[in-house]
Amino acid sequence: MTTYPPAPQHPVSTIDGVLQYASIGTLELETGGILPDVVLGYETWGQLNADASNAVLIPHALTGSTHVAQGNTDEPGWWDVLVGPGRTLDTNRFFVVSINMVGGCYGSTGPASADPDGLPWGSRFPFVTIRDSVRAEARLADQLGIARWHAVLGGSLGGARALEWAVTEPSRVARCAVIAATAASTGEQIAFAQAQVSAIRLDPDFNGGDYYNGRAPLAGLGLARRIAHITYRSEAELQYRFGRTPQPGEDPLAGALPAQRGRYQVESYLDHQAQKLAGRFDANSYVILTEALMSHDVTRGRGSLTDALSGTDSEFLIAAVDTDRLYFPEQSFELAAALPGEHQVHLINAPIGHDGFLTDVLQLKDVLEQGFFA
């Protein structure tokens, strides 16, 4: 059973990078589901100023946590190069917040959390959309005393959430950076996601999502991660790093049966990525967040893309990774063209592929420092 400490009182913890919890009450969801007594896990860095005008929200990516920056902990953050004292997003000046999305497994109410009867939600956890997550996060912003974000920025799923914030809550977002993300998930992106979700659901240990008293569906989760990771990296990067090289001590042509052959290095690499994720992430949360991303469409119920974006009140920064084969740069150009006014698309030049939004984000340093965080 998952238990939570009491909700914090404002002002929040002064310990940068430490997970905190807030109760936001019952959440009515876009598709008709209801979650009672929702808790959001979040981390903060820096201090909120007197008029709450220096708050910055950084939504995490699909399997990311709220640990954006190391802060006063021993654990490195996933955007340490960008966030911290004296860095582009200077936490001596700005109050940075990252919130675990509803349905996740890093502090917020999710499928592994206890329902009102004290049992894991499991298969009964309702469908959650990115729009639902914004509404939940807005309640936490209220508790923190933040009426309007100085900026909301994120990459991949985090970028989709940032964009949804700017469209759903236009008066609360002064600046919005959408990095390696699109206005809506495309057919191909949904197809890649569906294969990952199916890999988890077809694992015999999944048990329809009710596996918390037994074995977790680690094989299915690992396969989902393998599929995803291929889309996160470019063909050129995989070829350069691995090509057809065998794993040391193994021969891919050895053995009379397929199961007896040795592995290529790229296979070992994918196995390693699968094992890492299976050791830290919940399979049900992977399904919930993946299907939320599949549903991503800022135009839903809002007309055309131009119509949907016409009511935004933010200064926008749109960026793409030039080698991204999951979120193609052309889709970022389409988003920029539909925004009110003129918007340049900033390209991150990274041979790695989609994950360049993590590894090479400092290529946006100048534009961020001269605009968003001047």
Rank of each mutant, 00 (worst) to 15 (best):
S98W: 02
P6N: 15
Q331N: 09
A199D: 07
G32K: 10
S133W: 01
L221N: 07
M294P: 12
P248M: 07
W121Y: 14
A336Y: 00
F127I: 08
L57I: 02
I227A: 10
N92P: 06
I200V: 15
F192W: 14
N92G: 15
V39N: 03
D37P: 02
D210M: 13
D322M: 04
L48W: 03
R226Q: 04
V18W: 04
Q265S: 15
D205V: 04
A336G: 01
H60A: 15
L218F: 09
A180D: 02
L223I: 05
D307F: 10
I58T: 10
Y212E: 07
V173R: 00
N284Y: 07
L339T: 07
V197H: 07
S234Q: 06
V96F: 03
I34N: 05
A55V: 05
W45T: 13
H354E: 02
A162W: 00
F94L: 14
F242G: 06
Q189V: 15
G17S: 05
A136F: 03
R244E: 15
G84F: 11
L270S: 10
S113L: 05
W165C: 00
L305M: 13
Q247I: 13
G104H: 03
V56K: 01
G209W: 04
G187V: 15
F372E: 04
N213H: 14
L40S: 07
L293G: 10
S13K: 06
S65C: 09
P252E: 05
G208E: 09
S285W: 06
Q260F: 15
E137C: 00
A350K: 04
V56Q: 03
D313Y: 04
A338S: 13
Y42W: 09
F127V: 13
S133P: 05
A292P: 11
R233V: 02
A274G: 14
E169T: 02
D355H: 09
R124F: 08
P329F: 06
Q9E: 14
P340S: 12
V83L: 11
G301W: 01
S310R: 13
P246Y: 10
G77K: 08
Q47S: 15
F316S: 03
S133Y: 04
G155E: 04
G86W: 11
R161D: 01
F372Y: 03
D313H: 11
S285K: 07
S123C: 14
F373W: 12
A174T: 08
P59H: 03
S156T: 05
V134L: 01
P11G: 11
P5L: 15
G84Y: 00
R225V: 01
A191L: 14
P126Q: 11
V38C: 02
A114K: 04
L238Y: 10
E330W: 02
R280W: 12
V173P: 03
V173A: 00
D51S: 14
L364P: 01
R201E: 15
P252H: 10
E169W: 02
V12F: 13
R241P: 10
T306S: 13
Y286H: 11
L289I: 01
F281W: 06
G118F: 09
P252N: 11
L202P: 00
T245Y: 12
G154P: 07
V12C: 07
L19E: 11
I99F: 02
V102T: 06
L293V: 15
A319L: 08
P248V: 12
A7E: 08
V321A: 06
L221F: 10
A112C: 14
G303W: 04
L82C: 08
G110K: 06
G158Q: 05
P170V: 09
D203K: 05
